[in-house]
Design a protein around this nucleic acid. Sequence first.
DNA 1: TCAACTAAGTTCTACTGTGCAACTAAGTTA
DNA 2: TAACTTAGTTGCACAGTAGAACTTAGTTGA
Lengths: 241, 241
Amino acid sequence: MPKNPPSSQSFPRPFTAVDVVIFTVIDDQLHVLLVKRPSGSGEPYPGRWALPGGYVDIERDKDLQACALHKLKEKTGVVSPYLEQLGSWGSASRDPRGWTATHVYFAMLPHTAVKPAPGSQPGEMGWFQVVDDGVGQKLAFDHDTILASAIARLRGKAEYTSLPAYLLPDTFTLSELQHVFAVVLGRPVDKSGFRTRVLSAGLVEEADGVRTGQSRPAQLYRLKMPQQPTFFPRTFNPRKD
Amino acid sequence: MPKNPPSSQSFPRPFTAVDVVIFTVIDDQLHVLLVKRPSGSGEPYPGRWALPGGYVDIERDKDLQACALHKLKEKTGVVSPYLEQLGSWGSASRDPRGWTATHVYFAMLPHTAVKPAPGSQPGEMGWFQVVDDGVGQKLAFDHDTILASAIARLRGKAEYTSLPAYLLPDTFTLSELQHVFAVVLGRPVDKSGFRTRVLSAGLVEEADGVRTGQSRPAQLYRLKMPQQPTFFPRTFNPRKD
DNA sequence: TCAACTAAGTTCTACTGTGCAACTAAGTTA
DNA sequence: TAACTTAGTTGCACAGTAGAACTTAGTTGA
């Protein structure tokens, strides 16, 4: 640790940034929000897609989470999403402008909650389908690595927590919940086992009303404790491959 | 995100630090390594105990993990421990010297691997027993919160991963492995269930030799994949409370 | 009007990994 | 050599899930 001459701390400091990996489900597929890098001179990775984020503003942002929430609201209009820390990436080489550390957050939204950002150009921002461990193209900075890490975290936690539930609106049917797990996991989920798993864990409670459609109406439910995900006592464990 | 005038980036930057929560087991109890804050003028929290860490040195540290490893080696002499990111804490108020973000790592060591740091005064550094969610005293900065988070992570992951295994030396008996789980979890662990859990997960392989003592010799084992913890298909689920 | 269709929700059986208790095995100690 | 101690095994119970088949409750179309 560099010794600090009293009251100075004048040694060089890295840049501090915050990025947000924002997941949603569109047309039964997992998607992630990306923004296009500006193409001004001196800008790194001009025109490339990147995770939404930017430098911490020490005047505006009182802490890292506030900074992440600000960026999320700026891009999606969403004010109270599910948000957790993913990790941080910092090195001398990841940004040509200098030693930079970014604090990465991880958000999950129902697509219905997203309002297109006012004053932003179409084409500057977009939802990209998640395929395997990325979006099928190289991103700016080390954002491929970060995105892959976020996808792995989401899929991993879907095996033993209720995390994918945050991709749904406030009320939903158990079939919809089952379906969003299947979308995240990339494989079918058994109906009967899933229902007892969810109900006996106390994850949800009945909401008023039913979802009507082409067949038997389905009971609506809501999360009993929306603040934090529920842990199941076992992972999924399908017999066949 | 503050607009960067091309080639300048002259806006104020937060401080960037790295701290390390280092766990070990001493005398059948979980311990954490703390260092005493210096008492020079201008130093925050003089004389208080804190997590080992310090500012990132952009000349010396090529990335965050290298910085964490450097601090770990500096304090313990250990060069290849189990190390994972815990999270990051950053705000305007957590350090009186200014807006600071710290990247916190989480290390686990066998106590036998620790060499007292050369050139450090005794009393400047110490192993503190973990009781409940801390060490029984207030620490510098927000290090109480960080430590509590690290303890929760360790105990939580001990329920469904092999994480506590990193508190043991390279070879160990299954009884020693069971015991270190019991120490971390703070409750007894069943022998038979634990053995089948560990063996059928392929966590360990037989090593040469046995541990002899006052009774029947015990087979030595080593981790089959020391690089990363193993996930078990279920959490522990003892019947009685 | 009602048979066909569809998706919701239930029931039954099997199976896996674990908890628990009792047991056997292999060494040391008095 | 009997008593003691800890390693390691065995047998049974049990909870939570997987899978398939079933019932229920609505819509749709001839």
